[in-house]
Design a protein around this nucleic acid. Sequence first.
DNA 1: ACAGATGTTGATGT
DNA 2: TACATCAACATCTG
Length: 278
Amino acid sequence: MPELPEVETAARNLRRWTAGRKVVEVILLDRAVVRRGLSTSARDADPEGAVVLEAAHGPLTVLRRGKRLGLRLGDTPILAHLGMTGRFVRQQDAPKHARAQLVLDDGPPIFFADARRFGGLATVTGTLEDAVAAGLGPDALDTPLDGPALRKALDARGPLKPLLMDQARIAGLGNIHAAEALWWARLSPFAPGRSLTPASADALAAAITRQLTFALDEVASDEVAYLSDGAHVANPFQVYGREGEACSACGTPILRDVQGGRSTFWCPTCQPLSPAQA
DNA sequence: ACAGATGTTGATGT
DNA sequence: TACATCAACATCTG
Protein backbone atom coordinates (compact mmCIF):
# COMPACT_ATOMS: atom_id res chain seq x y z
CA MET A 1 0.00 0.00 0.00
CA PRO A 2 2.76 2.43 0.62
CA GLU A 3 2.77 5.69 -1.16
CA LEU A 4 3.88 8.84 0.57
CA PRO A 5 0.99 9.05 3.06
CA GLU A 6 1.64 5.54 4.34
CA VAL A 7 5.36 6.23 4.62
CA GLU A 8 4.75 9.47 6.49
CA THR A 9 2.42 7.60 8.82
CA ALA A 10 5.11 4.98 9.37
CA ALA A 11 7.59 7.74 10.20
CA ARG A 12 5.21 9.31 12.72
CA ASN A 13 4.46 5.96 14.29
CA LEU A 14 8.13 5.12 14.66
CA ARG A 15 8.80 8.48 16.31
CA ARG A 16 5.89 8.07 18.66
CA TRP A 17 6.71 4.49 19.56
CA THR A 18 10.33 5.28 20.34
CA ALA A 19 9.93 8.65 22.03
CA GLY A 20 11.75 8.52 25.34
CA ARG A 21 12.85 4.96 24.65
CA LYS A 22 15.89 3.24 23.29
CA VAL A 23 16.34 0.38 20.89
CA VAL A 24 18.37 -2.15 22.81
CA GLU A 25 18.65 -4.82 20.12
CA VAL A 26 18.09 -5.34 16.41
CA ILE A 27 17.09 -8.87 15.47
CA LEU A 28 17.12 -9.80 11.80
CA LEU A 29 14.52 -12.49 11.17
CA ASP A 30 15.33 -12.50 7.46
CA ARG A 31 18.90 -11.40 6.93
CA ALA A 32 18.21 -10.68 3.24
CA VAL A 33 16.11 -7.74 4.37
CA VAL A 34 19.40 -5.85 4.47
CA ARG A 35 20.23 -4.85 0.91
CA ARG A 36 22.93 -3.08 -0.98
CA GLY A 37 21.57 0.32 -1.91
CA LEU A 38 17.95 -0.46 -1.09
CA SER A 39 17.69 -2.92 -3.96
CA THR A 40 14.24 -4.43 -4.36
CA SER A 41 15.68 -7.91 -4.71
CA ALA A 42 16.64 -10.23 -1.90
CA ARG A 43 19.40 -11.42 -4.21
CA ASP A 44 21.21 -8.18 -3.44
CA ALA A 45 21.43 -9.03 0.23
CA ASP A 46 24.22 -7.30 2.11
CA PRO A 47 25.60 -9.63 4.81
CA GLU A 48 28.11 -7.04 6.03
CA GLY A 49 25.36 -4.47 6.33
CA ALA A 50 23.38 -7.01 8.30
CA VAL A 51 26.22 -7.28 10.80
CA VAL A 52 26.30 -3.50 11.12
CA LEU A 53 22.58 -3.33 11.78
CA GLU A 54 22.73 -6.06 14.37
CA ALA A 55 25.25 -4.00 16.30
CA ALA A 56 23.14 -0.85 16.20
CA HIS A 57 21.35 0.36 19.30
CA GLY A 58 20.29 3.55 21.03
CA PRO A 59 17.66 6.23 20.49
CA LEU A 60 15.93 6.40 17.11
CA THR A 61 15.61 9.44 14.86
CA VAL A 62 13.39 9.24 11.79
CA LEU A 63 13.61 11.24 8.56
CA ARG A 64 11.53 10.91 5.43
CA ARG A 65 11.83 12.07 1.83
CA GLY A 66 9.29 10.83 -0.64
CA LYS A 67 8.75 7.15 0.07
CA ARG A 68 12.19 6.70 1.62
CA LEU A 69 12.84 6.61 5.35
CA GLY A 70 16.08 7.54 7.05
CA LEU A 71 16.64 6.03 10.49
CA ARG A 72 19.42 7.03 12.82
CA LEU A 73 19.76 4.28 15.37
CA GLY A 74 22.25 5.46 17.93
CA ASP A 75 25.25 6.29 15.72
CA THR A 76 24.15 4.09 12.86
CA PRO A 77 22.45 5.67 9.83
CA ILE A 78 20.03 3.36 8.04
CA LEU A 79 17.79 3.72 5.00
CA ALA A 80 14.46 1.93 4.86
CA HIS A 81 11.99 1.44 2.05
CA LEU A 82 8.61 -0.23 2.38
CA GLY A 83 8.46 -1.48 -1.19
CA MET A 84 4.95 -2.61 -1.99
CA THR A 85 3.95 -4.44 1.14
CA GLY A 86 6.32 -3.28 3.87
CA ARG A 87 5.05 -1.91 7.18
CA PHE A 88 6.17 -1.24 10.72
CA VAL A 89 4.05 -2.52 13.57
CA ARG A 90 4.51 -2.38 17.31
CA GLN A 91 3.17 -5.48 19.01
CA GLN A 92 4.25 -8.31 21.24
CA ASP A 93 4.37 -11.17 18.75
CA ALA A 94 5.94 -11.31 15.33
CA PRO A 95 3.42 -10.71 12.53
CA LYS A 96 3.42 -12.79 9.39
CA HIS A 97 6.38 -12.05 7.15
CA ALA A 98 8.30 -10.30 9.92
CA ARG A 99 11.77 -9.49 8.58
CA ALA A 100 13.34 -7.50 11.37
CA GLN A 101 12.61 -6.70 14.99
CA LEU A 102 13.60 -3.70 17.09
CA VAL A 103 13.64 -4.56 20.75
CA LEU A 104 12.92 -1.57 22.97
CA ASP A 105 13.92 -0.95 26.55
CA ASP A 106 10.25 -0.62 27.39
CA GLY A 107 7.11 -2.26 26.04
CA PRO A 108 6.48 -4.38 22.96
CA PRO A 109 8.97 -4.45 20.10
CA ILE A 110 8.66 -2.96 16.63
CA PHE A 111 8.57 -5.32 13.66
CA PHE A 112 9.32 -4.61 10.03
CA ALA A 113 7.08 -6.99 8.09
CA ASP A 114 7.05 -7.29 4.32
CA ALA A 115 5.23 -10.08 2.51
CA ARG A 116 6.48 -9.39 -0.96
CA ARG A 117 10.03 -8.50 0.02
CA PHE A 118 10.43 -5.55 -2.30
CA GLY A 119 11.17 -3.44 0.74
CA GLY A 120 14.36 -3.47 2.70
CA LEU A 121 16.94 -1.81 4.89
CA ALA A 122 20.36 -0.52 3.91
CA THR A 123 23.38 0.83 5.67
CA VAL A 124 24.60 4.26 4.66
CA THR A 125 27.91 5.80 3.78
CA GLY A 126 28.07 9.50 4.49
CA THR A 127 25.43 11.43 6.32
CA LEU A 128 21.90 10.19 6.78
CA GLU A 129 20.54 13.47 5.48
CA ASP A 130 22.42 13.11 2.21
CA ALA A 131 21.52 9.46 1.81
CA VAL A 132 17.83 9.98 2.36
CA ALA A 133 17.75 12.74 -0.24
CA ALA A 134 20.09 11.24 -2.82
CA GLY A 135 18.54 10.98 -6.25
CA LEU A 136 15.14 12.21 -5.14
CA GLY A 137 13.34 15.35 -6.23
CA PRO A 138 11.62 17.65 -3.73
CA ASP A 139 9.22 15.94 -1.38
CA ALA A 140 5.70 16.11 -2.78
CA LEU A 141 4.19 17.00 0.58
CA ASP A 142 6.77 18.83 2.69
CA THR A 143 8.01 21.17 0.04
CA PRO A 144 5.06 23.41 -0.71
CA LEU A 145 4.75 22.62 -4.38
CA ASP A 146 4.16 25.68 -6.46
CA GLY A 147 3.10 25.76 -10.07
CA PRO A 148 6.33 27.12 -11.52
CA ALA A 149 8.51 24.58 -9.72
CA LEU A 150 6.23 21.76 -10.75
CA ARG A 151 6.17 22.95 -14.34
CA LYS A 152 9.94 22.89 -14.40
CA ALA A 153 10.08 19.43 -12.85
CA LEU A 154 7.69 18.08 -15.46
CA ASP A 155 9.29 19.79 -18.43
CA ALA A 156 9.73 16.70 -20.60
CA ARG A 157 8.14 15.31 -23.70
CA GLY A 158 6.75 12.20 -22.06
CA PRO A 159 3.23 11.75 -20.69
CA LEU A 160 2.33 13.38 -17.41
CA LYS A 161 1.53 10.38 -15.29
CA PRO A 162 4.85 8.55 -15.59
CA LEU A 163 6.60 11.89 -15.09
CA LEU A 164 4.68 12.44 -11.86
CA MET A 165 5.77 9.01 -10.67
CA ASP A 166 9.43 9.70 -11.42
CA GLN A 167 10.87 10.07 -7.94
CA ALA A 168 13.81 12.05 -9.26
CA ARG A 169 11.41 14.78 -10.36
CA ILE A 170 9.02 14.80 -7.40
CA ALA A 171 9.42 12.38 -4.54
CA GLY A 172 6.37 10.64 -3.17
CA LEU A 173 3.71 10.14 -5.82
CA GLY A 174 2.89 6.56 -6.76
CA ASN A 175 0.42 5.05 -9.16
CA ILE A 176 -2.72 5.79 -7.19
CA HIS A 177 -2.13 9.33 -6.10
CA ALA A 178 -0.68 10.34 -9.46
CA ALA A 179 -3.91 9.20 -11.12
CA GLU A 180 -6.04 10.90 -8.50
CA ALA A 181 -4.16 14.20 -8.63
CA LEU A 182 -4.49 14.31 -12.42
CA TRP A 183 -8.23 13.79 -12.10
CA TRP A 184 -8.58 16.59 -9.56
CA ALA A 185 -6.55 18.86 -11.85
CA ARG A 186 -8.59 17.76 -14.88
CA LEU A 187 -5.46 16.86 -16.79
CA SER A 188 -5.01 13.86 -19.07
CA PRO A 189 -2.43 11.32 -17.90
CA PHE A 190 -1.29 11.19 -21.52
CA ALA A 191 -0.70 14.92 -21.95
CA PRO A 192 2.98 15.70 -22.49
CA GLY A 193 4.58 17.19 -19.40
CA ARG A 194 5.87 19.97 -21.57
CA SER A 195 2.33 20.93 -22.54
CA LEU A 196 1.50 22.14 -19.02
CA THR A 197 0.46 25.76 -19.02
CA PRO A 198 1.27 27.87 -15.97
CA ALA A 199 -2.38 27.73 -15.00
CA SER A 200 -2.62 23.95 -15.31
CA ALA A 201 0.64 23.60 -13.38
CA ASP A 202 -0.89 25.63 -10.58
CA ALA A 203 -3.95 23.41 -10.63
CA LEU A 204 -1.83 20.27 -10.58
CA ALA A 205 0.32 21.50 -7.70
CA ALA A 206 -2.82 22.24 -5.70
CA ALA A 207 -4.29 18.87 -6.63
CA ILE A 208 -1.18 17.00 -5.47
CA THR A 209 -1.18 18.81 -2.15
CA ARG A 210 -4.87 18.20 -1.72
CA GLN A 211 -4.65 14.54 -2.65
CA LEU A 212 -1.72 13.74 -0.40
CA THR A 213 -3.05 15.72 2.53
CA PHE A 214 -6.39 14.01 2.22
CA ALA A 215 -4.83 10.57 1.93
CA LEU A 216 -2.58 11.24 4.89
CA ASP A 217 -5.58 12.06 7.04
CA GLU A 218 -7.18 8.81 5.92
CA VAL A 219 -4.18 6.70 6.81
CA ALA A 220 -3.06 8.65 9.81
CA SER A 221 -4.98 6.58 12.31
CA ASP A 222 -1.79 4.74 13.34
CA GLU A 223 -1.31 1.03 13.80
CA VAL A 224 -4.99 0.31 14.00
CA ALA A 225 -5.25 1.19 10.32
CA TYR A 226 -2.59 -1.34 9.51
CA LEU A 227 -4.06 -4.10 11.57
CA SER A 228 -7.46 -3.69 10.03
CA ASP A 229 -6.08 -4.28 6.56
CA GLY A 230 -8.49 -7.10 5.96
CA ALA A 231 -11.53 -4.99 6.62
CA HIS A 232 -11.96 -3.66 3.15
CA VAL A 233 -13.64 -0.33 2.96
CA ALA A 234 -15.19 1.09 -0.14
CA ASN A 235 -12.76 2.31 -2.75
CA PRO A 236 -12.04 5.86 -1.57
CA PHE A 237 -10.68 7.02 -4.92
CA GLN A 238 -12.21 9.03 -7.75
CA VAL A 239 -10.72 7.08 -10.65
CA TYR A 240 -8.27 4.49 -9.37
CA GLY A 241 -9.76 1.01 -9.63
CA ARG A 242 -12.99 2.36 -11.10
CA GLU A 243 -12.83 1.25 -14.72
CA GLY A 244 -16.31 1.36 -16.22
CA GLU A 245 -17.84 3.24 -13.30
CA ALA A 246 -19.36 6.67 -13.72
CA CYS A 247 -17.09 9.63 -13.17
CA SER A 248 -18.25 11.37 -9.99
CA ALA A 249 -18.09 14.74 -11.74
CA CYS A 250 -19.72 14.07 -15.11
CA GLY A 251 -20.98 10.50 -15.24
CA THR A 252 -18.76 9.40 -18.13
CA PRO A 253 -17.45 5.85 -17.65
CA ILE A 254 -13.89 5.78 -16.30
CA LEU A 255 -11.34 4.30 -18.68
CA ARG A 256 -8.30 2.20 -17.95
CA ASP A 257 -5.12 1.83 -19.92
CA VAL A 258 -1.52 0.92 -19.30
CA GLN A 259 1.28 3.44 -19.11
CA GLY A 260 4.78 2.33 -18.35
CA GLY A 261 3.44 -1.05 -17.35
CA ARG A 262 1.11 0.44 -14.77
CA SER A 263 -2.65 0.75 -14.81
CA THR A 264 -3.89 4.25 -15.46
CA PHE A 265 -7.47 5.33 -14.81
CA TRP A 266 -9.01 8.53 -16.09
CA CYS A 267 -12.19 10.26 -17.18
CA PRO A 268 -12.03 11.05 -20.89
CA THR A 269 -14.48 13.90 -20.48
CA CYS A 270 -12.97 15.67 -17.50
CA GLN A 271 -9.42 14.87 -18.56
CA PRO A 272 -9.38 15.27 -22.32
CA LEU A 273 -6.20 14.96 -24.28
CA SER A 274 -6.96 18.18 -26.04
CA PRO A 275 -4.88 21.02 -27.40
CA ALA A 276 -5.71 23.82 -25.03
CA GLN A 277 -5.56 23.09 -21.34
CA ALA A 278 -5.85 26.30 -19.52
C1' DA B 1 -6.70 -24.81 -11.08
C1' DC B 2 -4.58 -21.21 -13.11
C1' DA B 3 -3.79 -17.00 -15.54
C1' DG B 4 -3.34 -12.39 -14.58
C1' DA B 5 -3.68 -8.70 -11.52
C1' DT B 6 -1.24 -5.81 -7.63
C1' DG B 7 0.24 0.33 -4.42
C1' DT B 8 7.61 -0.57 -5.39
C1' DT B 9 12.00 0.34 -7.98
C1' DG B 10 15.67 -0.89 -10.70
C1' DA B 11 17.97 -3.06 -15.02
C1' DT B 12 17.46 -3.93 -19.79
C1' DG B 13 16.44 -3.12 -24.67
C1' DT B 14 14.75 -0.54 -28.87
C1' DT C 1 17.36 10.60 -24.70
C1' DA C 2 13.31 8.48 -23.54
C1' DC C 3 10.30 5.38 -24.01
C1' DA C 4 8.50 0.45 -22.95
C1' DT C 5 9.25 -4.02 -20.86
C1' DC C 6 10.66 -7.17 -17.60
C1' DA C 7 12.15 -8.81 -13.18
C1' DA C 8 12.28 -9.04 -8.31
C1' DC C 9 8.43 -11.60 -4.83
C1' DA C 10 4.11 -13.18 -2.62
C1' DT C 11 -0.60 -12.88 -2.55
C1' DC C 12 -5.24 -12.23 -4.17
C1' DT C 13 -9.05 -12.28 -7.68
C1' DG C 14 -11.59 -13.88 -11.46
